[in-house]
Structure formats: structure tokens, C-alpha cells
């Protein structure tokens, strides 16, 4: 990435006012097989800053693929290719030749479906991203770890055993630890790919509460198969089907009175 041309690699990325788009997707098409078939077709949407945006749709509709496009996780697939359009984050085309994926991911964190803490201590899991960034100062790390664990509503439960293995935590705690790890590097955006699908209802409720709290500091994009969860946690919802964006609107509109019949059929369980 070229320091002089990219906004994403600066230490202090520009602030984006709430309701302003922090992510702009413009006519995006994407292929997993070098362009033979497009998994995503002509997607355009703007994701507002400081809000929770949910991606919904049946399996195979492309919602997780689009989520993974937002921090270029698909770069890990050799035959993956953006075949048209663009994604801008904080005003920067993230697929521009001078943008490094690693730099991008400092601004766009991710939490996965299956919680995946490193086989290290709780402290080291949270400090990991900061250490990768070269931060060695113990007091800076201590403060960042505490702040991240506080924000992920885990501090009170683990403050007395920060040196214990993260793998000894419950599933819900491990997922909150992964959220703490993701936010420790202070990204502007947190992507969540079905973050509650492996959790019980109580742990799910904790994560949903956490999403509402994190919204104050981060823009969140969440993929979920749980319609009720989308209605509870998100401000905006995008419905995808067969690689296309069918409808994108306020969540209350999508679940209360959607414009498109396909959307109504899907959210009300009438998808044939």
C-alpha cells in the first residue's frame, strides 16, 4: 500500500459521521472461478457508519461471500476474483493495487461463526493484534486488553484469570473473547459471520446485547440466518437471493412491509 495515496493505512483514518456511508459497494460482481460464473452480480449498496447492517438470505445467496469481500478474506481463494464494480471503505477502493489486505483488516475486523481463540492465554489473545502491529509497551497493552474486554462484556468474568488458557472459557465467552480480539486494534468496522449460530440462547442474548453496545463505537455488518436476530440487532437489512441484492432498507421496513414480494416471501417463511 502506498502511504501517500491510501486513507486506510494512516494511523488515524478519517472519522465518518453516523448515517454517512462508511462502505460503498458499487455494481460489484464477484466470481470464485476466475469469472466463469459470478457468485455476486451487480451489487450496489451503501452501509452507514455507526449502525448495524444485517445481510440475510437463503444459503448460497452470496451474503457471506459479500461479507468476506469487505475485508478481502476471499483473497485466500486462488480463483476468487472481483469481476466488476468496486468497494470503497472510508473513501478508498479496497481492491486498488496499492491497498494491502493486512492493512485493510486493521480497519475491518471479523468475527466468525465458530469461535476460534488462539491456544494462548486470554490476555495474549486480546493483545495479539496489537503485538502484530509492533506494540510492546506493557502498560499500553494492559490498557488495551482491559478496554477491549470491558467493551466485549467479558472483563468481570476473566479479570482474575487473564493468564489462563482461552480454551478453558465457555463457548459464549470464547466468542466474546474473539470480539475483544477483533476490536482491540480499534477497527472502524466489525464484520460478523453468523456469530451466534454455535451458541445457546443465553450466550446468544449476551452477544446481541454486546452488538447493541458496540454500535456506539463501531460500524457492524452481520450475516445471520436468524430472522428474529436480524430484527433485534440491526438498523438496516439487505436481502440477497441467488447472488443478487433484492432489497435493502430499514430493518423495520424489511420485516414490517417489504417492497418486493421475494423479500416478503423469504422473511415470512414462504420461500418455495
Amino acid at each position: 500500500m502506498n502511504d501517500s495515496s491510501s486513507t486506510l493505512d494512516s494511523a488515524d483514518a478519517p472519522e465518518v459521521a453516523s448515517n454517512e456511508p462508511i462502505i460503498s459497494i458499487d455494481n460489484l460482481s464477484f466470481s470464485y472461478d476466475l469469472g466463469s460464473t459470478n457468485t455476486l452480480r451487480d451489487i450496489s449498496l451503501e452501509i452507514p457508519a455507526g449502525k448495524v447492517t444485517a445481510f440475510i438470505g437463503p444459503s448460497g445467496c452470496g451474503k457471506s461471500t459479500l461479507l468476506r469481500c469487505l475485508n478481502r478474506m476471499n483473497d485466500l481463494v486462488d480463483t476468487a476474483k472481483v469481476t466488476g464494480g468496486s468497494i470503497s471503505i472510508l473513501g478508498q477502493d479496497i481492491n486498488a493495487p496499492d491497498v494491502e489486505a493486512i492493512e485493510l483488516r486493521k480497519h475491518v475486523g471479523m468475527v466468525f461463526q465458530k469461535y476460534n481463540p488462539f491456544p494462548k492465554s486470554i490476555y495474549e489473545n486480546v493483545a495479539y493484534g496489537l503485538r502484530v502491529q509492533g506494540i510492546k509497551n506493557k502498560s499500553v497493552l494492559d490498557q488495551a486488553v482491559e478496554e477491549s474486554l470491558q467493551k466485549s462484556a467479558l472483563w468481570d468474568e476473566v479479570k482474575d484469570r487473564l493468564d489462563s488458557s482461552a480454551l478453558g472459557l465457555s463457548g459464549g465467552q470464547q466468542q466474546r473473547l474473539c470480539i475483544a480480539r477483533a476490536i482491540a486494534v480499534k477497527p472502524q468496522i466489525v464484520l460478523m459471520d453468523e456469530p451466534c449460530s454455535a451458541l445457546d440462547p443465553i450466550a446468544t442474548a449476551r452477544i446481541e446485547e454486546l452488538i447493541a453496545e458496540l454500535q456506539e463505537d463501531f460500524t457492524i455488518v452481520i450475516v445471520t440466518h436468524n430472522m428474529q436476530q436480524a430484527t433485534r440487532v440491526s438498523n438496516r437489512t439487505a436481502f440477497f437471493y441467488l447472488g443478487e441484492l433484492i432489497e435493502y432498507d430499514d430493518t423495520s421496513k424489511i420485516f414490517g412491509n417489504p417492497t418486493r414480494k421475494q423479500t416478503e416471501d423469504y422473511v415470512s417463511g414462504r420461500f418455495g
Binding site: 430472522m227 420485516f255 414490517g256 417489504p258 416478503e264 422473511v267 415470512s268 417463511g269
Partner: peptide, 10 residues
Amino acid sequence: RFNPVASDLR
């Protein structure tokens, strides 16, 4: 039992 939405909820 069904958590209806949209026109079903109405």
C-alpha cells in the same frame, strides 16, 4: 410459535 412478520404479522 411462528413469530410472523410483514403482512402475516399485520
